[in-house]
Nucleic acid binder design. Structure first.
Length: 496
RNA sequence: GGUCCGAUGGCCGAGUGGCUAGGCUCAGCUCUGCAAAAGCUGCUACAGCGGUUCGAAUCCGCUUCGGACCUCCA
């Protein structure tokens, strides 16, 4: 890994950029909070998973062996933090008249489809909460054994106040327990709790509750925060490298995870680097299901949504998101999507030119410094996965490719080789962008032959200075979405 | 009410105590039969008011505006 810049990660826990050193290099353990599968994912969810797709890809690119664990939350947690709240999956099951597990399967499938469309790499392990009920019950026993939890009416709650006597609670989100105690909103149905800050480890289910399991305390279901503590520990150990999720999970979810892990083992700091992706906004406001300002990938691609002027391809969206840093909010707009679409197009056109790029000089052109470009790419990613900077460097490479293609610059075969592998590595492997083709795959070969023929016919018309015929062919193809490009070397076509 | 974050050119969006971010748009030019593509040039901004400094958009304070979390949320 000597040729790469050191990697710095902004650690949400310390609020500082820290040099990344894995616990057991070259192995890296990463846990990311996955979706609750009770409805379709929306674009904001996609952004978070994209952020960690980039982290996963870049760590792999650097040569690390990453175990990437991303859970599926399929236990029906309550819609609110009160005892009378309905569970989300159960509610949806009643609405759609399906078994809860049918709901879970349906939206898990949808989630996987979306991840595939956006070219996200699947995680190494994708554990589900319902598959780890036994482990969660064991964890509750450990926490109770250390005196940080109590039973109330068949439910088990984590005692934040008791825990805070031994370990600081609120470190991650920068909260002080006294402030929390003074400012917690009064909610109904918290009679079972000794303290409003306490959170459920196990909830006793009422008769109408559909998803429930036996436990030593009651027939019920585990608390939301517990599954991540349990599954991360099971697959990555009591201490591991990276834990990620959306900014909105910082409090209370991740704070509670820390308390549970420490509460179960007595050892603080189970996670070495906490990473939080920022929110996607619309007109400056967080995109959220409850706001009604999100849309599904289907709507995004088709453009069938009031916020969308037209549809955008998945790679356009991916590129758009990568043009902003993961830790900043990113504002969605049609103008920005369209700008990204054109930029991506220019990048991809340059990439497809790489193969037939002419090489002239045997000796390296000293004006062309591929190593410096590669260095700048590595610096950008090493600085807390700064994809916007990486992309800006890649556009310098685009400029270089175009200059060579137009004969303004000459490069040696060696330079061409290193440029190609460098650019391919960052565009395809690190950023995970793909060349999108709009044509149906089965007819591509045939229509390509026909198009080549038309371009040839137009070429002869041109050499006869028959501009009428030449322009007629170009205009007719243009109307079909095929653009003709003339250059000194001849003409070519491409789908626009 | 509490905690925290942000305010960058026509739009999006990086960055930073002195050195061109980048993309898109717009205008001019080169190339070209014309066009497209590509290239070059220009439009050169850091919310406002004070302060620190040789020097601040970048550090500090205040003001205004916006946002997030405090309740399920990526």
């Amino acid at each position: 890994m000597a040729q790469f810049s050191p990697l710095y990660i902004h650690n949400s826990l310390t609020r500082e950029k820290e040099l990344f050193t894995p616990l057991n290099g070259p192995y890296v353990g990463m846990y990311v909070c996955g979706p609750t599968v009770y409805s379709n994912v929306h674009l904001g969810n996609v952004r978070t998973f994209l952020t960690f797709d980039i982290v996963y890809r870049y760590l792999s690119f650097l040569g690390y062996k990453v175990r990437y664990v991303r859970n599926i939350t399929d236990v029906g947690h309550l819609t609110g933090d009160s005892d009378d709240g309905e569970d989300k999956i159960g509610k949806k099951a009643r609405l759609e008249n399906l078994e809860p597990m049918e709901i879970v399967q349906k939206y898990t499938n949808d989630f996987h489809d979306v991840m595939r469309i956006f070219n996200m790499k699947p995680p190494s392990i994708e554990p589900s909460a319902t598959g780890h009920i036994v482990e969660q019950i064991e964890a509750i026993k450990s926490i109770m054994g250390r005196g940080y939890a109590y039973e109330s009416n068949g439910s088990i709650y984590f005692s934040v106040r008791k825990y805070n006597e031994d370990h600081p609670y609120g470190e991650l989100s920068g909260r002080k327990i006294d402030d929390l105690l003074n400012n917690t909103r009064s909610l109904d149905g918290q009679d079972e709790k000794q303290d409003p800050l306490d959170f459920a480890l196990w909830k006793k289910a009422d008769a109408s509750h559909l998803m429930k399991w036996p436990s030593p305390w009651s027939e019920g279901f585990p608390g939301w925060h517990l599954e991540c503590s349990v599954m991360s520990t099971k697959y990555l150990g009591t201490q591991f490298d990276i834990h990620g999720g959306g900014m909105d999970l910082k409090f209370p979810h991740h704070e509670c995870e820390i308390a549970q892990n420490t509460g179960a083992t007595g050892e603080p700091r189970s996670v070495r680097y906490w990473m939080h992706g920022n929110m996607l906004t619309v007109n400056g406001r967080k995109m959220a299901k409850s706001e009604g300002n999100g849309f599904t990938p289907e709507e995004l691609i088709s453009g069938n949504h009031p916020l969308l002027e037209r549809g955008y391809s998945p790679m356009t969206v991916r590129f758009f998101m990568l043009q902003g840093h993961y830790a900043s909010t990113l504002d969605f707009s049609n103008d920005a999507l369209q700008a990204a679409e054109k930029g991506l197009d220019r990048l991809m056109k340059a990439l497809s030119q790489l193969d037939q790029l002419p090489c002239a000089a045997e000796n390296d052109n000293t004006e062309v410094d591929i190593r410096l470009l590669a260095q700048r790419c590595s610096d950008a990613m090493g600085d807390d996965f700064n994809t916007p900077i990486l992309i800006s460097v890649l556009f310098d490479a685009v400029k270089l490719v175009n200059n060579v293609a137009d004969g303004r610059l000459a490069i040696s075969p060696q330079q061409k080789g290193s440029l190609t592998s460098m650019v391919h590595g960052y565009v395809f492997d690190v950023l995970g962008l793909t060349q999108e083709t709009t044509a149906g795959a089965d007819s591509v070969g045939e229509s390509a032959g026909l198009l080549d023929l038309l371009v040839q016919l137009r070429g002869s018309a041109k050499s006869n200075q028959d501009w009428t015929t030449a322009d007629a062919i170009r205009d007719a193809l243009g109307a079909l979405g095929i653009a003709i490009k003339d250059s000194k070397e001849g003409s070519s076509w491409e789908r626009s």
